[in-house]
Amino acid sequence: MSEHAALIAPAAAEFTAVLRGIGEIDLAARTPCAEYDVRALLNHLLYWGPWLEAAGRKAAPPAVSSGEAESDLVGADWLAAIEGRTARLVELFGAPAAWEGETTFGGTPLPASMVGYMVLDEFVFHGWDLASAIGAKFTVRPDVAEAVYAIALEIGDQARSMKVYGEEVAVPEDATTFERALGASGRDPGWKR
C-alpha cells in the first residue's frame, strides 16, 4: 500500500506525457473504454479528479450540481486543469501517509489505500487508454506494471461489480506483466484504434 507511494510520480509522468500529445483532432477518437471517446475520457478525469484529491486529503467530497455524464469540463484549458490536478495528486499520494487509515470517496468510507489504488490505476490504465486512442507510445516501468497487476487481481471482482473494470480479457501465456494487468482490468492489450 504505502510502498506504492513511490510509484505515483513515475506513473503520473508518463500519463502527463500522453496528455501533452493530444490535439483537438484527437478528441473524437475512440478509446479502449467502449463508452468513452478521448473527450469523454478527459471529462471523466476532470470530473473525478477533485473527488480523488478530497479523499487523499481525508476531506469532504466536492459539492457537485450534476453527474459525470451531464458535465462538460473539457474546455480550452483542459490540459492545464488535468496537469494541475495530477501534480496535486502526486503530492498527496506520493506521501505514504495518504495511503494509511480510512477516508471517504463520494461519502462512502473506505481504506485510504483503496483511493491510492484508484489514483495509480487512473494514471496507468487511462494513460494507456489515451495513448492507444491517439497512437502514442506508452511506457510503464516494471515496478509500476507489477503494482497495477497486483492491484487489478486484488480488487478485480469488486471493481467489476462496480462497473469500474470490464470483464477480464484473456491474454497469451507470453504476455508481459503490464499486458496481464490490462487484461485483468478488462482491457484488450491488442486493442487497435
Rank of each mutant, 00 (worst) to 15 (best):
L130S: 06
M1E: 13
E83H: 04
A54M: 09
I134Y: 06
L92V: 09
G23Y: 03
E179G: 05
A5C: 10
W128M: 09
E70S: 09
G106I: 02
A131I: 09
A40H: 14
D129T: 07
A159I: 06
E167A: 13
G186Y: 03
R30I: 10
A55N: 10
G84M: 08
P32M: 08
D129L: 10
E179A: 03
R85S: 07
G23S: 14
G183M: 00
L110D: 04
A181M: 07
E167T: 04
A80G: 15
E68G: 03
F93N: 06
P62R: 08
G156H: 06
D121T: 06
V124N: 03
A152N: 09
F178V: 08
L52D: 02
G156A: 09
G56F: 10
E122N: 11
V74G: 11
W191G: 05
S2G: 01
L73F: 07
L27D: 10
V164M: 13
T104P: 06
P50K: 12
A145N: 11
P189R: 02
V124I: 12
S71K: 08
P50A: 14
E3V: 11
E146L: 09
E68P: 02
G21T: 07
W48P: 01
A97C: 01
W48A: 03
I82G: 08
E3R: 12
P189V: 00
Y36E: 15
D72A: 11
T176Y: 00
R180H: 01
G127R: 01
L89D: 04
G183F: 00
V148T: 13
T176E: 04
F138A: 11
A63F: 08
G135V: 07
G186H: 00
P32I: 03
A28Q: 15
A152R: 00
E24L: 10
Q158M: 15
W51R: 13
A54G: 05
R180S: 00
L182G: 00
E3T: 13
G49P: 08
E100F: 04
T16N: 09
V90L: 05
F15S: 07
G49C: 13
L42I: 12
G190V: 04
G190T: 14
I8W: 01
R57I: 12
A17M: 07
G107R: 01
P32C: 05
A81D: 14
L73R: 12
A175G: 07
V144S: 02
I82Q: 04
D77T: 13
A54K: 06
D129G: 09
F15I: 06
W78K: 12
V38K: 08
E35N: 11
V164F: 12
P189W: 03
I8R: 01
